Amino acid sequence: MKKFVAASLFITAFLLLGCEPAATFDKPQPADVKSLTSFPRRLQGKYISANQASVITITDQLITRQYDFDVKEHKDNIGSSYKLVGDTVVDQTDGTKEKVVVTDDSIIFHANWTDTLFSVTTRNVIKKFKGYYFLNKYYGDNAWEVNKLSLQNGVLSVGSISDIDDIQKLKAITETTNDTMAKHFALSRRQFKKFVRRDGFSEEETFARVEEDGM
């Protein structure tokens, strides 16, 4: 069933790779570094987010993220396409139904779904560089979105490029004028190394490793 309009906007904020990337690169980064064919065994496993609303699972070829949390909305915010009937929300466009918990003037529904964040393919490649793993996801027209992955003391860190600060760093490194709207960059290996050293990928989320028998 389709989620309520207001709740859908709330859920979207949880997605790691659910929108247009802040920046892309003309080739997988870092350039001139050999790609890995799979995720190393030390990275493989399950990791839970700090708010415990999602779990990342890493296998040899795949990274998925399972979301599992409750969303609370005021009854007036479910959208004109939906109707509350007892403890059920009915989508009036297609007749589908979803059970909810009703409390006073609010409703609570349980959100649970799985997203594929990264899959190793001929175009989506992993590169290891300076202790980090870089996930290069093909975006189209010789453009790759890149995320930084690291694991230290059981904590998995996933870094992405921020819209403002990291773009300014990339412009400075590539000597791109600040008055341009550039979001696509061509970096040498040395320039990429400089970007990482300047704390690029500043949007970061952390996850704690979970023992399999504890899941």
Rank of each mutant, 00 (worst) to 15 (best):
residue 2 K to L: 12
residue 4 F to K: 00
residue 5 V to I: 09
residue 6 A to E: 12
residue 10 F to W: 12
residue 10 F to S: 11
residue 11 I to M: 15
residue 13 A to S: 15
residue 14 F to D: 06
residue 15 L to N: 13
residue 16 L to P: 15
residue 17 L to M: 10
residue 19 C to H: 15
residue 22 A to Q: 12
residue 22 A to C: 04
residue 24 T to I: 02
residue 25 F to Q: 05
residue 30 P to V: 01
residue 31 A to P: 00
residue 32 D to G: 01
residue 33 V to C: 10
residue 35 S to L: 09
residue 36 L to V: 13
residue 39 F to I: 04
residue 40 P to H: 01
residue 41 R to D: 10
residue 41 R to M: 02
residue 48 I to S: 08
residue 50 A to T: 13
residue 50 A to D: 14
residue 50 A to C: 02
residue 52 Q to L: 08
residue 57 T to K: 15
residue 57 T to W: 03
residue 58 I to G: 01
residue 60 D to W: 05
residue 66 Q to M: 03
residue 69 F to R: 07
residue 69 F to D: 07
residue 70 D to F: 12
residue 71 V to K: 04
residue 74 H to D: 15
residue 74 H to L: 13
residue 76 D to G: 05
residue 76 D to T: 05
residue 77 N to G: 06
residue 80 S to V: 08
residue 81 S to N: 11
residue 81 S to T: 02
residue 82 Y to N: 07
residue 87 D to P: 00
residue 88 T to A: 00
residue 88 T to D: 12
residue 89 V to R: 03
residue 96 T to V: 05
residue 97 K to A: 13
residue 103 T to D: 08
residue 104 D to Y: 08
residue 105 D to A: 14
residue 107 I to D: 05
residue 108 I to D: 05
residue 111 A to D: 14
residue 114 T to W: 11
residue 115 D to Y: 15
residue 116 T to C: 08
residue 116 T to V: 12
residue 118 F to K: 01
residue 122 T to S: 14
residue 126 I to M: 09
residue 126 I to W: 13
residue 128 K to N: 01
residue 128 K to H: 03
residue 129 F to W: 05
residue 131 G to E: 14
residue 133 Y to D: 06
residue 135 L to M: 14
residue 137 K to F: 06
residue 137 K to S: 07
residue 138 Y to R: 11
residue 140 G to T: 04
residue 140 G to Q: 10
residue 141 D to Q: 14
residue 142 N to E: 09
residue 142 N to L: 08
residue 143 A to I: 07
residue 145 E to S: 13
residue 146 V to M: 11
residue 148 K to R: 11
residue 150 S to P: 01
residue 152 Q to H: 10
residue 153 N to T: 10
residue 154 G to H: 06
residue 154 G to Q: 02
residue 154 G to L: 07
residue 155 V to K: 15
residue 158 V to D: 02
residue 159 G to D: 00
residue 160 S to I: 03
residue 161 I to W: 04
residue 162 S to Y: 05
residue 166 D to F: 00
residue 166 D to G: 04
residue 167 I to K: 00
residue 169 K to F: 03
residue 170 L to S: 05
residue 170 L to C: 00
residue 171 K to E: 02
residue 171 K to Q: 06
residue 172 A to G: 06
residue 172 A to R: 02
residue 174 T to D: 11
residue 181 M to L: 14
residue 182 A to L: 09
residue 182 A to C: 04
residue 189 R to P: 07
residue 190 R to H: 04
residue 198 R to E: 14
residue 199 D to Q: 13
residue 201 F to M: 01
residue 202 S to D: 03
residue 204 E to I: 14
residue 206 T to V: 06
residue 206 T to R: 12
residue 209 R to N: 03
residue 210 V to L: 15
residue 210 V to W: 07
residue 211 E to G: 08
residue 212 E to Q: 09
residue 213 D to P: 00
residue 213 D to T: 00
residue 213 D to H: 07
residue 214 G to M: 09
residue 215 M to C: 12
